[in-house]
Simulated scan of single mutants.
Amino acid sequence: MNLYFRLFWLLFWRTRHCRKIDFLGTSRITYRALPSDCDINFHLTNSRYPAFMDLARTYMLAEMGLLKRFLKLKWMPIVNAAEFTYIRDIKPLKKFEIETKVVGWDEKYFYIEQRFISERGLHCIVHVRGVFVCKGKQIPLEVLVKEAGYTAPAPELPPEVVKWKAFLQLKKERNL
């Protein structure tokens, strides 16, 4: 599978030659939509977006200087929820960039925004909510933030994330 190749390339080459960003900085990584990434509609298939996002979040941790440290601590990221807004398709063989950044956190989860962008403009905006776990237990957010070396107050969550968070809580309450 080409994503395994991309994962190995990311781990063994790209992370060794990446720039450095701070904890709230924006990470950028470029890919090309290969024919095997596309569906019968001749565009990047919806199932590839989350796979590319996993790679982009891994790259973001490397740019933050946290990837090796978190692996050493055996902290593994877990996605709890994601919401996608597709704007326009990505055609075969076209280059696109994924911008990834931490937009904030609350008492339990961290929130990340990921954007797919090309020369044609914005293709997709995704919000991801997640945690880090070690040996089946969640790493407290204050421990994670401290390990990242971030000492300023938590940023205010964007309004769309606040509303999404409330929507997720409503879904949870209605389905218990």
Rank of each mutant, 00 (worst) to 15 (best):
V161K: 03
E160Y: 10
F167H: 13
L144K: 02
V103D: 03
L34K: 08
V143R: 11
V162W: 04
E160S: 09
A81Y: 07
K171D: 14
L122H: 00
Y59F: 10
W75S: 07
V143T: 10
D39G: 10
N80V: 13
N2R: 13
K68V: 14
L55N: 02
G65D: 01
F5V: 10
L66A: 05
E97S: 09
S27F: 00
T26P: 03
T151N: 09
P159I: 13
D39V: 01
Y150P: 07
M76E: 10
E113P: 03
E63P: 05
E160N: 10
L3T: 04
I29V: 02
E83H: 12
R19D: 13
F52P: 01
I78D: 12
W9Q: 11
E119S: 14
T30M: 09
K146N: 08
C134G: 09
A152Q: 11
K94N: 02
P159N: 08
L176E: 15
L71S: 14
K68H: 12
I125C: 02
R19C: 12
Q138T: 15
S36M: 15
I90L: 03
R48G: 02
L61E: 01
R14I: 02
A56I: 05
N41Y: 12
E107F: 07
R6G: 03
Y109W: 15
I98D: 00
Y59R: 07
K172Y: 11
V102L: 13
R69V: 13
I40N: 15
R174G: 07
Q138K: 14
R48V: 03
T30N: 14
K146G: 06
Q138A: 14
G104I: 04
E142L: 10
M60Q: 15
T85C: 12
R120I: 04
E173H: 08
L24F: 07
V103C: 11
I87R: 07
H123V: 00
T100H: 01
E99R: 08
C124F: 01
V126P: 03
V102W: 10
I87D: 05
T45S: 14
P35Q: 09
A148T: 03
H43T: 03
R120G: 09
M60L: 13
F132K: 05
G149Q: 04
I117S: 00
R57T: 07
E173L: 08
T100K: 01
E99S: 14
T100N: 06
